[in-house]
Design a protein around this nucleic acid. Structure first.
Length: 563
RNA sequence: CGGGAUGUAGCUCAGUCUGGUAGAGCGUCUGCUUUGGGAGCAGAAUGUCGUCAGUUCGAAUCUGGCUAUCCCGACCA
């Protein structure tokens, strides 16, 4: 491709509305253009990278027996009612009506559509297992898109779905997907952290997320350096030693004026935060849910939702809390009524705690839950943090942040049962297919590669997904230089390389800056000076320095580089 | 959905406090010079100052509504 005929623009200054490296470089390099919040157009340069990622992922999906299909983005309300997700999913699912006033949705994922396809074809156990996948736009009406391609509303996803006659068969394929994902991410220079993740209320059993470890990540990961336990913080298991003081001491009310937070109370009474109890309130299905966790920890709303088997959990209104005999800011389940009380397992055996006295400006000291609480349920409900210990090996946990690049998920029979994707087994008995689903956000992966591999001037693309394999830059206007550049360009093209020729009448500085923004692995510069010795400058994007090599050695060296 | 910030030329931004005919740099176009890391000189084009209303003799500037974008949080099968 000759740049003089290419469609692009590059931006010299940092766009005012971009703050992460990938966002900045994707805009500055002319890869993408924002159309609206979280909705992006891809220019030719950006699409090339996306297509290469697709090719890479497609190869791995085919390798593990995948069959590519194409499922519609616009779907009917009825389809989503079959799986119950029409009502289970909130505003993230975009709903609209067609010209006949028929309710429709924009698919945010394709379990329903693929299950509909599967039930059309599937009739016998002999057809199982199979795996279908596609590259398809998803639309999610995100409450808050951010970070360029990191979190968007419309995006391209590789989504795969497998169907099995047994959970053992699913297990085998799940592992194949796991390994394929590792190969895909490794192929673009990423060593993902694989964490156990939430399976939600959607009938799933086991799920993993593949995370890029980065400070700009939106997910928090809990890791054990000793035994290798890794989980998303929202569901991470952990231990923490319950605070134990004087178990005999009687409840004692103390004056704590205007001290409503754990921090204020522990400082005021001069006690450690883990010797306090935090009382948090939610509302679910018109019922007040009271949760007590160790003062130094937070409630995991995901854990609580899973315990309650609901996706609906709202912060409770003060009136509801007061009506249950508790006082926000000074609350405890002691003498409460009309509420369901959950005590975190890490605090139920504690003693001598500070907790609210259900009276403004007063707390109790010497609270021992097992003695002082009534009618409570014990659950794993607090959120892990770096203050906690590994539940497997007692080693202190560490915490880091990550971007979710992909996930794999054992769905079980939730969709096949509700949507009747059935087959006859060896005994002629009708059974629901066992399913798994596997997703990778392609655009997010593109952005993540940049986050993972860039310098001050632009992305440093891995060889296999760079928009072009080699860029030739001519320096100056001398006819012999231009001729040599064009000749080399044609030669490399004929040899099957993807070549970008910067034949613009621009100063070298401009050309080099743009080359850095495109991050093409090999840059070959030809100038009057180098040509005097029949040489060119060979520079790798990943290196600072260049070398002069013979014009005649370029092809061999390039072949060697891409071998 | 809460909190914060911003919206002025294609881009980055000044001007707003203290109301008085719209600015700079970069980019674009023309010409000359220049040619190894976003050049120099000369000239030119470019704006419903996000939008609607209000105050005022007069609004980019003051007031209110709306809207868009970004950041933090909530949310995220």
């Amino acid at each position: 491709m000759k740049l003089s005929r290419y469609f692009f623009t590059t931006i010299r200054e940092t766009p005012s509305d971009a703050s992460t490296s990938s966002h900045i470089f994707l805009i500055r390099g002319g890869y993408i253009k924002a159309l609206s919040t979280g909705i992006y157009s891809f220019l030719p340069m950006g699409l090339r990278v996306m297509q290469k990622l697709e090719t890479l992922i497609r190869k791995e999906m085919n390798n593990i027996g995948g069959l590519e299909v194409d499922l519609p983005v616009v779907q009917t309300k009825e389809l989503w009612q079959e799986s119950n997700r029409y009502s289970d999913i909130g505003e993230e699912l975009l709903r609209f009506k067609d010209r006949n006033e028929h309710p429709m949705v924009l698919a945010m994922t394709h379990e329903e559509a693929v299950t509909d396809m599967a039930r059309y074809v599937l009739s016998s156990y002999k057809q199982l297992p199979f795996m279908l996948y596609q590259f398809k736009v998803k639309y999610r009406d995100e409450a808050r898109a951010r970070g360029g391609l990191i979190r968007v509303r419309e995006f391209l996803m590789k989504d795969a779905y497998s169907f099995h006659s047994s959970s053992e068969s699913l297990d085998i394929h799940y592992k194949e997907q796991y390994d394929a994902y590792i190969r895909i991410f490794n192929a673009v220079g990423i060593e993902p952290i694989v964490v156990e993740s939430d399976t939600g209320i959607m009938g799933g059993k086991i799920a993993h997320e593949f995370m890029l470890n980065t400070p700009i990540g939106e997910d928090y990961l809990i890791l054990c350096d000793k035994c290798g336990y890794q989980a998303n913080r929202e569901i991470a298991l952990f231990k923490t030693n319950p605070y134990r003081g004087n178990e005999k001491a009687e409840l004692k009310k103390v004056h704590t004026p205007h001290k409503t937070s754990i921090e204020e109370v522990s400082e005021f009474l001069n006690v450690p935060a883990n010797s306090t109890a935090k009382c948090v309130f939610f509302e679910n299905d018109s019922t007040l849910i009271t949760v007590v966790v160790p003062g130094h920890l937070d409630v995991s709303e995901i854990k609580l939702k899973n315990i309650l088997k609901t996706s609906e959990l709202l912060p409770a209104e003060d009136e509801l809390i007061l009506a249950s005999g508790m006082v926000p800011g000074y609350a405890s389940p002691i003498n409460s009524k009309n509420t369901r009380v959950f005590i975190d397992k890490n605090i139920v055996d504690a003693s001598d705690l500070v907790i609210g006295a259900n009276e403004t400006d007063y707390h109790y000291m010497h609270c021992t839950p097992k003695r002082d609480f009534e009618n409570y349920e014990v659950a794993d409900i607090a959120e892990a943090s770096a203050l906690c210990l590994c539940y497997q090996c007692d080693h202190p946990l560490t915490e880091t942040r990550g971007i979710e690049l992909g996930n794999i998920f054992k769905l079980g029979t939730k969709f096949s049962e509700s949507m009747k994707a059935m087959y006859l087994d060896e005994q002629g008995k009708s059974k629901a297919a066992v399913m798994g689903c596997y997703g990778i956000g392609v655009g997010r992966l593109m952005a993540s590669v940049i986050e993972n591999s860039h310098d001050d001037y632009g992305p440093i693309w891995p060889k296999n997904i760079a928009p072009f394999q080699v860029e030739i830059v001519s320096i100056g206007k001398d006819a012999p230089v231009l001729d040599a550049a064009e000749k080399l360009y044609n030669e490399l093209l004929q040899q099957g390389f993807e070549v970008l020729l910067d034949d613009r009448d621009e100063r070298p500085g401009v050309k080099f800056k743009d080359a850095d923004l495109w991050g093409i692995p090999v840059r070959i510069a030809i100038s009057k000076k180098t040509l005097e010795n029949e040489q060119v400058e060979w520079k790798l994007r990943s290196e600072k320095s260049f070398e002069l090599i013979s014009l005649h050695d370029v092809l061999a060296q390039l072949k060697d580089f891409y071998a």
